Amino acid sequence: MMPSIGASFAFRTLLILLMVGGPVTYAAALTEPKRPPQTELQKDGQTPNDGMDDPDAAEDSAEDPATGLPMPDSLIDKNAKDNAGPAVDDHSDIPVEIILDPALLPAPVQKLRVALVEAAASGDVERLRPLLGDAKEPTQIAIGDAPEDPILGIKSISGDPDGREILAIMLDILSTGAALVDKGTPNETYVWPYFAEKSLDKLSPPEIVELYRIVTAADVVDMKEFGGYNFYRIGISADGKWKFFVAGD
Rank of each mutant, 00 (worst) to 15 (best):
A66K: 06
I143M: 14
L211Y: 04
E225M: 15
A217N: 06
R129D: 05
H91D: 14
S158R: 13
E118Q: 11
R164G: 09
A179S: 12
E197V: 13
R213L: 06
S122E: 13
A7D: 05
V20N: 07
D64R: 01
D172T: 04
S204A: 09
M223W: 14
V20P: 07
D145W: 03
D93S: 04
L180C: 05
A87H: 14
L171G: 03
I76A: 10
A218R: 10
A119P: 05
I157Y: 02
V209C: 05
D134W: 06
I166A: 06
G235C: 06
T139N: 05
P186I: 04
G85R: 10
G163R: 03
T139S: 04
R127V: 02
D160N: 10
G240H: 00
Y212F: 11
S158C: 04
E32V: 09
A29M: 12
I98P: 02
D201I: 09
P138Y: 11
M71P: 06
D101C: 03
M170H: 02
D160K: 13
I94P: 01
E118S: 12
P95G: 02
T185I: 12
R129M: 00
A121S: 13
M2P: 07
A29T: 09
E188R: 11
G144R: 14
G153C: 00
A146H: 02
